Simulated scan of single mutants.
Amino acid sequence: MEILQESGKTLLHIRSHFQGLTKTEQKAAKYIMEHAPEVIYLSVTELASRADVGETTVLRLCRKLKFQGFQDFKLSLAQDLVQPMDYLHTEITDQDDAASLTQKLITSHIHTLEQTRELLNPEELGKAVDILYEAADIQFFGVGSSGLTAVQAAQSFLRIGKRSGAGTDTHFQAVEAALMTGQSVAVGISISGSTKDTNDNLMLAKRAGARIIAVTSNARSPITKIADIVLLMVARENPLQSSSLSAKISQLSIIDLLNAGVSLRMKDQALKYKELTAKATSDKLY
């Protein structure tokens, strides 16, 4: 395959270091140069698989190129490849008026939800609903944008009477994970599936006996090796698109499905708790 013409400093940097790399590093580097526009959307696991090398080879290559890690490398590569308006949205141009923006963005969100519906395994979703219904307590784990989804998820389950939590500090998350039991369920939310803090805390929860549910867009990521149940959602982000609303809509749709499924299992009890929690906050409104 013909190697793309290097348009930014990152690819030129790879080219200049190419001869000093090991054979396996050259293999990874060549794949990056040939597929640069795709690489910015891949996890380290996916890139290693496609280049037919180990994950450590990819990480070692990044360090040799003077990057702090794979994410730092992808950010640099994305800055070279992506035009300013592209990372707002791939179809948006500076010529779009308000009506065009509305049409394009909402259509994109609908498309994301449709793809998530096609990707989500109903059997796995059913299993997840079952163990959440049986759980004595639920902890949601996530950082960054996924951490915000985790907080929203905990609130939604708390309102139907399921004891739920989502710490915003990773150290407190670790404490919560270590205190979980065989009656607990830990839900890890990570778009890449390679977020170290989230995965480390899920491992703590697993060792404590908790059952693990993973919500991720990467079926071959490290989080899937920890999880008992994997729920796949669609989120295609390069480093300049992190925290995109499209990805969050996809995450929240799965949380909503889980919450609705558990609510139906709880029937009148869920309605009772919804009324109680609504009344508890009603005097906060004018």
Rank of each mutant, 00 (worst) to 15 (best):
N238T: 07
L179P: 00
L11E: 14
Q241F: 12
T277S: 13
L61K: 12
F172G: 02
L276V: 04
R236F: 03
S253Q: 06
E114F: 04
Q95G: 02
L61V: 12
T281E: 12
R211M: 01
P122V: 04
S146Q: 07
K23I: 13
Y31D: 05
R236S: 13
D137H: 04
Y286Q: 14
G20C: 07
M33A: 04
H13T: 14
F140L: 03
V53N: 03
E34N: 04
S282I: 09
T10D: 09
E275G: 03
R159N: 15
A28V: 05
R211G: 01
A177S: 12
A270S: 13
T195M: 04
L11H: 07
G165M: 01
A99L: 15
H109G: 08
E118T: 14
T107C: 02
Q19T: 10
A36K: 05
S217N: 02
R163K: 15
A247M: 14
V215D: 04
D130N: 12
K274I: 10
R265P: 00
E55W: 03
T10L: 10
D200N: 02
A48N: 05
Q95P: 00
A136N: 10
I131R: 01
I254H: 15
D200Y: 03
S164W: 02
D197G: 01
K206D: 03
G54F: 05
S243Q: 09
G69H: 11
Q95S: 11
L59K: 13
T216A: 02
V39L: 06
S156H: 14
L258F: 11
A28G: 04
Q251L: 12
Q68P: 00
S16P: 14
T93D: 00
L119R: 14
I213C: 09
M233K: 13
I223F: 02
Q79A: 09
M33R: 02
K9P: 00
R220F: 14
G69F: 06
V143W: 07
I106N: 08
L12T: 10
V175Y: 14
T149E: 11
R236T: 13
L240Y: 13
Q155K: 09
E275T: 14
V82L: 09
G142N: 04
P222S: 08
V175Q: 14
E46S: 02
T181H: 11
H35R: 11
S246A: 15
I32E: 05
A128P: 06
A214R: 09
Y87G: 02
M85W: 08
L232Y: 11
S250R: 07
T45R: 06
Q269A: 10
A78V: 05
Q95M: 07
D137F: 03
D197A: 07
D94S: 09
T181C: 08
I226G: 03
R15P: 00
A128D: 08
V53K: 06
V230P: 12
S7Q: 13
A205I: 00
A174R: 05
S263K: 05
G165D: 01
K272Q: 14
I191W: 05
V82N: 01
Q83G: 04
S108R: 13
L202N: 12
T56M: 13
T107H: 05
A153H: 07
G126S: 12
Q152A: 08
N238S: 15
L202T: 12
Y273H: 13
T170C: 07
T22Q: 03
A150D: 00
K74A: 04
S242L: 15
G8I: 10
V58N: 03
T45K: 10
G54P: 04
S244E: 11
N201H: 06
L271K: 15
P222E: 10
S192E: 07
L252I: 15
